[in-house]
Write a protein that binds this DNA or RNA. Structure first.
Length: 835
RNA sequence: GCCCGAGUGGCGGAAUAGGCAGACGCAACGGACUUAAAAUCCGUUGUCCGCAAGGACAUGUGGGUUCGAUUCCCACCUCGGGCACCA
């Protein structure tokens, strides 16, 4: 459809891109590191599932532009790329097609790499890592052992999320609306013994250190804050009637303690068993527990699900007023949060209110609005707000804010409660009952129990010859030579742990490995990591706002505590790009709506693909895919190509005449305008790209320059053109375009007669004097409405501006006969006459 | 339900610190070139009134602050995202 050769007015992108790929490949090794300040630039490494799509392309193109600009600005840049290569897609593909995951992933890595290179994206390939390489996962296992050694990797029995389709457990973060993040299957609950990383130990620091993350988008921090879910309140001990024991509850509303009318235990609470054992309630409670357990997480989590509960026949005592309060069990109290038990205050809590209404339990108002009454007997809904305490013994009459503090202080004094903080965040479940992951380096010995594999025995190699059908047990269980081993401690018979690690473990530290990927003494050498880290600019999709970004922050903090690194946060600046949609859905392989960059590269060239994706809109916003932008981008590049071609001709012509030699030749008005535009463009482009990440406006500035150059060619005959001005404009245009369209720019740079690569040039600087125009347009407003425009010298005084404005005939019409109350002048901008 | 974010021409978007709303591009229309078309180059293009000069209206809706609001504040509507029995 489009011309293959560069005849006429279109350039031959295929020939140009192939030519420069070849030349660049040869120059690769010779690239020297700059002397300037270090700059670690990183895009989230991909899971190579099949072919890369436009979402990947967007990510890498943004990174590549920044990489090229920073290098030319003199930074010492590290820009690595690697592969997140363990995980379910590889294993699922293997099950479906019979290809081994290793083969499948290697093929995909090859095709990703090829596509990336075809786009002209430049990486430090000598830093490449692949997480499924034993050289990499050896250190993932090493890190696991470090965590274990420090009590941060623990094995515990807990209710866990189970995806019946993926046949494995999942971390909380991997569940979206009660469904598996990967396959959207409803998640169920299982009680299993599993390995956890104690991220909850770091909950407070993950919150506190957010103040170091000034370079992160606010919304990502807010999402993490919500996820961690810190609440301040109090733990209060409730004595059990007929026992000398007490049981604790957590509440954020200690000011409502006098309003407690019942007490609820979660169905999973160990006390439930104890309280009903041998009583008339036992059978029914057992049945109830069973019933709740069967409900999937979705059902139990949804607020529209009916609250259900049972009285246990026992009582606790309200420690403040010594009242006897009945103990219930109810489905809406979660074992995982707080203490698994609550004090119920139906007057001031929606859920307790609903429950009390259903089971006809008493409701007692203890807070009333500051200005108003509340009818206890006709309550329509719980009153959740602040207010004045009533019916609260010695605390009555206090403001609830004040009362909160006073009551906690009283509880602490009496030793029956204390100020406390609770988090929504749970420990990170890292076991996976799947084959394609890093084996957990643990051995179970009949005599010694849980024994970590010694550091020197790492890696625990993943066997290649395994029947990897998902059964709900790790496929490794059926691999005799893997499972059966000897205990590192007593040399007796022992079994290996057969679960593998969540792939998010692998990706929680890859940015450290990148600094020195071939290091063999440990996961990373401190000096290299301390030089390059933290990552100066991290770029990736917002879908990792919680998962990957929070896990990585957690890992870095653990390494900090172990003295392995000197920084507390891994990513100083984060840029979250928007997603690409097509036909209303996020572009992804599973949705089958992928637009592959290959076709565009083939038909229009890599430069067009790059330009198009950057010009489509602000990079942080989501975009709907459209083919139209491709044509437009291609048209612009051709416009540049023709312009430079013509400039080269003009310059040759001009240099062969005497014009250039007579340097005293006057500079025309058009020359001045073009020079000004050239310098203004350097300024705007540089600011937009390197400070604001506003690639779309940077490109529009280039388009304006190109338009002005066409205008210059139109208005000034070829013989009259000023060679210096023309050369400057042309060369600046090519230099600025270079990070966006590297192939075409390199070609044009060569045609302009240069030997060195345009990509090795220092970033162009501009002259503020030249960029400044000597005349500006000032707006005249009457009562804030635009009435006239005047052209004045740039350095005009405010007085002068005012004078000219008041003499404007056009404006005068609008205030004739009225009194001028005030005249507002803004230097260089406007004069507003208020009448 | 709670917490974020966004709403600007036919479309993607611009307006960087409260000061010319609509840069740049797409689409559409007109002209030049061409036997013709494509490509290219040059124009026009927010809406309404007007022959025109010109004017009125206009950044989701309604209010407010200000000489002046796309920009700040309040309320509401719509869309997108996050969380969702978290005590």
């Amino acid at each position: 459809m489009l011309g293959v050769t560069a005849v006429g007015n279109r350039y031959d992108h295929r020939q140009i891109e192939e030519k420069w790929h070849r030349i660049w490949e040869g120059r690769e090794e010779k690239r020297r590191r700059a002397k300037g300040r270090k700059y670690y630039l990183l895009e989230m490494f991909p899971y190579p599932s099949g072919e890369p799509h436009m979402g990947h392309v967007k990510n890498y193109v943004i990174g590549d532009v920044l990489n090229r600009v920073r290098r030319r600005q003199g930074y010492d840049v590290l820009h690595p790329m690697g592969w997140d290569a363990f995980g379910l897609p590889a294993e699922n593909a293997a099950i479906q097609t019979g290809t081994h995951p290793k083969i499948w992933i290697d093929n995909n890595i090859k095709s990703f790499k090829r596509a990336i290179k075809a786009l002209g994206i430049q990486y430090d390939w000598d830093h490449e890592v692949t997480t499924c390489d034993p050289d990499y996962y050896r250190w993932t296992q090493w890190i696991f052992l470090k965590f274990y050694e420090n009590g941060l990797a623990v094995r515990k029995r807990a209710p866990v999320n189970w995806c019946p389709s993926c046949n494995t457990v999942l971390a909380n973060e991997q569940i979206v609306g009660g469904r598996c993040e990967r396959c959207s299957t409803e998640v169920t609950q299982k009680e299993l013994v599993q390995w956890f990383f104690k991220i909850t130990d770091y909950a407070q620091r993950l919150l506190d250190d957010m103040e170091l993350l000034r370079g992160w988008p606010e919304r990502v921090l807010i999402m993490q804050q919500n996820w961690i879910g810190r609440s301040e309140g109090a733990t209060v001990e409730f004595p059990l009637v007929g026992s000398d024991r007490t049981t604790p509850i957590f509440t954020t509303r200690p000011d409502t303690l006098y309003g407690v009318t019942f007490f609820i235990l979660s169905p999973e609470h160990p006390l439930v068993e104890e309280l009903v054992k041998g009583t008339e309630y036992e059978d029914e409670v057992r049945k109830f527990q069973e019933q709740v357990r069967k409900e999937s997480l979705v059902d139990r989590g949804a607020p529209e699900v009916e609250k259900k509960g049972l009285f246990l026949g026992r009582y606790v005592v309200n420690p403040l007023n010594e009242e006897k309060v009945p103990v219930w069990v109810a489905n809406y109290v979660l074992m995982e949060y707080g203490t698994g038990a609550i004090m119920a205050v139906p007057a001031h809590d929606e859920r307790d209110f609903e429950f009390a209404r259903k089971y006809d339990l008493p409701i007692r108002v203890v807070i009333k609005p500051r200005d108003g009454e509340i009818d206890e007997h006709n309550l329509r809904e719980a009153y959740l707000g602040e207010g004045v305490m009533v019916n609260s013994g010695p605390f009555s009459g206090l403001d609830s804010q004040e009362g909160k503090k006073k009551i906690v202080r009283y509880l602490e004094k009496e030793g029956i409660g204390k100020f406390d903080v609770s988090y929504r965040l749970r420990d990170w479940l890292i076991s996976r009952q799947r084959y394609w992951g890093a084996p957990i380096p643990i051995v179970y010995c009949e005599r010694c129990g849980i024994v970590p594999v010694p550091y020197d025995d790492l890696p625990v190699l993943l066997p290649m010859d395994v029947d990897f059908k998902p059964t709900g047990q790790s496929p490794l269980t059926s691999c005799q030579e893997f499972v059966e081993t000897s205990c590192p401690r007593c040399r007796g018979l022992a079994k290996r742990e057969t679960d593998t690690m969540d792939t998010f473990v692998c990706s929680s530290w890859y940015y450290l490995r990148f600094c020195s990927p071939h290091y063999i003494e440990g996961p990373f050498p401190k000096e290299d990591v301390d030089y390059w880290m933290p990552v100066d600019q991290y770029i990736g999709g917002v879908e990792h706002a919680i998962l990957h970004l929070m896990y990585s922050r957690f890992f870095t903090k653990v390494f900090y505590d172990l003295g392995m690194v000197k920084f507390k946060e891994p990513f100083a600046n984060l840029f979250t790009q928007g997603m690409i949609y097509k036909d209303g859905a996020k572009m992804s392989k599973s949705k089958g709506n992928i637009v592959s960059p290959d076709r565009i590269v083939e038909d229009y060239g890599a430069d067009t693909a790059r330009l198009m994706i950057l010009f489509a809109g602000p990079p942080e916003l989501d975009m709907e895919w459209s083919d139209r932008g491709v044509e437009g981008a291609y048209r612009f590049l051709n416009r540049v190509w023709r312009l430079v071609r013509d400039s080269v001709r003009s310059l040759q012509l001009l240099s062969s005449s005497e014009r250039e030699i007579s340097s005293e030749r006057e500079i025309s008005q058009e020359d001045v305008k073009l020079r000004r535009k050239t310098h203004q463009t350097i300024k705007k482009f540089t600011q937009d790209v390197s400070e604001r990440f506003s690639f779309n406006t940077a490109i529009s500035a280039l388009m304006e320059l190109v338009n002005d150059m066409y205008k210059y060619n139109e208005l000034v005959s070829q013989e009259e053109q000023n060679p210096q001005v023309l050369r400057e404009a042309t060369e600046i245009l090519v230099q600025l375009l270079a990070p966006i369209a590297p192939h075409l720019s390199e070609e044009l740079w060569e045609q302009l007669g240069h030997k060195e690569s345009v990509h090795d040039l220092p970033w162009p600087s501009y002259d503020e004097e030249i960029a400044r125009s000597e005349e500006i347009t000032v707006v005249i407003q009457i009562n804030g409405k635009l009435r006239d425009r005047i052209t004045v010298p740039v350095d005009i005084s405010e007085e002068e501006m005012k004078k000219i404005a008041l003499s404007s005939q056009k404006a005068a019409k609008f205030y004739e006969g009225k009194e001028i109350k005030k005249v507002i002048t803004v230097p260089g901008k406007l004069v507003n006459i208020v009448v």
